[in-house]
Nucleic acid binder design. Structure first.
Lengths: 297, 297
DNA sequence: TCCATTCTCTGACTTTAGTCAGAGATATCG
DNA sequence: CGATATCTCTGACTAAAGTCAGAGAATGGA
């Protein structure tokens, strides 16, 4: 990554925190301390658990409590204990609180509109397109990867969604039953591993690795949630699996894929996988790939 | 401007202040109050006048003074009176201050790099392109227009730059002498007006309007500073002049231009000016344009 | 049932941020 | 020269943001 690129990002960060950030801070408080305004905003019409608010806004429990007392005193929110766990309390907006929130909403709209107003129609389109692009890419950059057991709840959800998708897309359908217990065992250490991709805590993709030879591994169960496609989730998962494979001393990775999964095939090619002859008996596979891993990442 | 566009801008603002803003604030303070960090940063290796710092950071004189005392106590800056006007004092970084600033610089670089790192090469390119686009458009949106006298200092500077540019670009050169006093008089109320475009307080473009008939006006002296081109400065100035013309009851605008000013010609066409036959004796003109103004903007 | 844990609240802080009214030094204008 | 304005500094504030320790209620597991 060269210095020019870094400089561009810095210029952008600077501009955007200056202009957008400063405007937000000054406009969106409505004569209220920023902390309270943010809290009101983050509570939303739905209400929220204190715990969630503390995590999202990174607030000290004491501080949060005090802010809530203040909002309560203003008649904007009520706090009551949750019904499942009575330690966890929930905030809800009162009618007045919802009115306040609506006012913030209007302000926020005005602020956004004021960024567009001075521009011509073509420039607006360009601005919006660029914003969408950045939004998408920043979220991509925020994909978190972690190694989990394929039996964990999140992993199971991903695998089920994956199987459902295969059943819908494969020409002859796909029957995974309850998955493949043997494969799942092989995707846990020491024989392999299973990687989950998360965005904002939500699982949006997965992929597994199992050893199939002395120094050969196989990639299985690569999947990306439909709402997260086009953000490089699969690519990141694949890189992670490759890194783990290298750590495990493997020098070759193989994988197979069905002919209807065109995007997947293109991705594997981009990532340096070469098509090879059939190496297994998977009845659903039409293409087989292999990549030699270089020892240093 | 439709609701979807506003929503996109809001999403973007939110994302960006959250991610970029929060990171900046937390990373770039190095155990120092944010105020001091910003001040150190804004002072820069060059040093700066207190006055300039106060304007840029919007600080109360008392507050600024106290922040400086604190930085002085830490041995990071020295404050001394300017030599021209001894009321105006200047801050300079000490050696330690420069080291601190360099550390901030490195942090800032790391922060930027961390946004790029998780992305692939193609995605990086896309991100950078989108950032450049937004930077450019936000700056465009920040162009301030104001009606000034063509005799004001800022206007004179623009006009001089304009004349110099014409002299350099016109095939046979251009001799404006001291400008055209008669034209300048006509570009002031009630016969016309002169509009200046500023970005961050710096004049970056201008344009004038004078009445040449009962309900006909003429656009003159349209110019954009080289460093601000491609941001729609001229378009905004032109729109402003058109609005002022409409207010003054004009229904037709004319203008002429030299054949070497290709960009200008393209811009006039885009803005609805049709090429017409010669309507004046300007020896430097090769193209003549006209636009009918609709009564409502 | 008891013990450790989790969650929220309160009180008692500290630090930052920001404001305001003078005072004193310096410059500018008539 | 004197009057006025500009610029910075100091002291005396207030408000907001953030921290910390401890108490009390609720929960979960041994």
């Amino acid at each position: 990554m060269d210095a020019g690129q870094v400089a561009q990002v810095r210029r952008f960060n600077r501009l955007v925190t200056r202009r957008v950030g400063a405007l937000e801070v000054n406009h969106l408080r409505r004569g209220r301390p920023l902390g309270e305004a943010r809290l009101l905003f983050e509570t939303g019409t739905e209400g929220a658990e204190l715990r969630a608010l503390r995590d999202r806004l990174r607030l000290d429990p004491g501080y949060l409590s005090r802010l809530l007392r203040s909002l309560e005193a203003q008649g904007l929110v009520t706090v009551e204990s949750g019904n499942a766990d009575r330690r966890r309390r929930c905030v809800r907006l009162t009618k007045e609180g919802r009115a306040e929130l609506a006012a913030y909403d209007r302000l926020s709209d005005e602020l956004a509109a004021s960024m567009l107003k001075p521009l011509g129609a073509a420039q607006r389109e360009r601005l919006l397109a660029a914003m969408a692009e950045i939004e998408c890419l920043i979220r991509t950059a925020e994909i978190e990867l972690c190694v989990v057991s394929p039996k964990s709840a999140a992993a199971r959800r991903c695998l089920c969604a994956y199987f459902r998708e295969l059943a819908a897309r494969f020409e002859g359908g796909f029957d995974a039953g309850e998955g493949d217990p043997k494969l799942e065992r092989e995707m846990t250490p020491p024989n392999g591993c299973f990687v989950l991709a998360r965005i904002d805590g939500r699982a949006v993709g997965c992929g597994g690795l199992r050893r199939i030879g002395e120094r050969t591994g196989e990639i299985k169960r690569m999947w990306t949630a439909p709402e997260a496609r086009g953000r490089g989730v699969a690519r990141r998962v694949l890189h992670e699996l490759e890194a783990l494979a290298r750590e495990a001393g493997l020098n070759t990775l193989r994988l197979d894929t069905n002919r209807v999964l065109v995007e997947a095939r293109a991705m594997y090619r981009r990532e340096g996988y070469r098509e090879i002859a059939r190496y297994n008996r998977n009845p659903y596979a039409h293409h087989w790939f292999e990549k030699k891993l270089e020892p240093t990442a």
